[in-house]
Computed example of a mutant assay.
Amino acid sequence: MIPVAGVRGLYSTVAGMTAAILLTAVSIQPVVAEQVDAPASGALTHEKILKVWEEREQRVKSARFEWTEIRLITDDLLMPGESRVEPDVPQYSVKSSLSLKENQIRHTFRKEIWQVDAPRGENSFVSVSNGETAKVYLPPGYVTEYPRGHASQQVGSDEVNSTYLKPFLWCYRPSMSSVLVAPLEKFDITQERAAYQDRDCVVLRYQPTPTTKFELWLDPSRDFVIVRQQFIRDGLVANQLDVEYLPVDETRVWLPQEWRFAMLDKKGKSLLSMNGTLTRAEINPTLPDADFEFEFPPGTWVHEDKAHEHIVMADGKQRAVALGERGLPYESLLSGTGRVSKSRWKRVLVQINLSVVVFVCVGLVLRWNQLRSHR
């Protein structure tokens, strides 16, 4: 286990950086690095890489991390309902945490929000998976003015796709589905090497289309940790994630220390850049299963699937939201006064029947034209 106090001490200097320094740090301009042919050596295989990754995953049965991100974002990427408290300062900080236990995962974050009328102190995003059920909670102001939730029966969490979790999941849960943009075997192990901070890195490449490709830069001297991921479109870097690691005593468990992410549009304009700094870490702590459970708070409108939605009432009971009620005001549903009238149900049924009639008529016309064309 890594002593929490020790980790705090390691990062106290970085955590104390001024906002001006952080602003400079996140304004990175990704470029495709010059690569050279690799020297003759033993053949590297997917199996060798996977074996090293799996061994590290077995050494870290559980983990808990806290970190801070400073993000610079343009208006193009603001969430619906968000506005800037300070319009001329496109910067905000995010305090995040991640807990891992086997295939269970919990991710939370709280940002210095720009959201309108969102209650301070109650704006934490939560994503939890206990290995069987996944839940996501969006606080008021994050997407709508009221809290939203989503629950589904699935093995893992959709959060493994999050760029902001990659530094940790690359290290400790590389076998989780979707942690990489594609399964490792789909990446070609090239005969190229890329210099990353004076380190000789292996380049893996996956090309889903003729004009797009993903590159992973692995450091063989540090158990093939991923130090860079690039998405390249039409020969230009569209986004890039770089990770700095710190060795942890004799266990050779590499700890993400700092990471930088940048996203560019097709013209090279910066849409988003981010600098993350680790502030606290525990490797193999005792984590109760309760950490990976979550109950939606009262007032949450929960989406389960296409046909099922409900609102959590003040007494904890679930108030089902019928299909015909989903256009009603949230306040009326929450208060219980938003029942759909019989006349509205009749209008809904009439609209459904008309849609069916139109669909059948269009099908008949298309079939008639097809028969005529074959005569």
Rank of each mutant, 00 (worst) to 15 (best):
G149C: 05
S93V: 14
L216A: 03
Q153H: 13
K166S: 11
K51Y: 05
T163A: 08
L246R: 13
D223C: 08
T277Q: 14
L287V: 09
E159N: 10
W114H: 08
Y146A: 04
E293I: 03
E112V: 05
I283P: 02
S341A: 13
M79Q: 10
E192C: 02
P210D: 05
D289I: 13
E34C: 01
F359I: 00
S99E: 14
Q257F: 13
C171N: 11
E145C: 11
V4K: 12
L44N: 08
T163R: 11
H46L: 03
V7L: 08
L77V: 05
E215Q: 06
T45W: 01
R106P: 01
R56I: 08
E250K: 04
Y245L: 01
R367C: 09
L323G: 09
R106I: 03
V225P: 04
M1P: 12
T163K: 14
L271K: 11
F109G: 01
P210L: 02
M17C: 04
R260A: 09
F125S: 12
P139D: 02
L218V: 03
A182G: 10
R193I: 12
A15D: 07
E82Q: 15
V36C: 00
S343W: 09
V14E: 11
V128N: 07
G299D: 07
E309T: 03
A15P: 03
Q207C: 01
H308G: 01
Q29I: 10
I2K: 04
V85R: 04
V243L: 01
K342T: 12
V128G: 02
G363V: 10
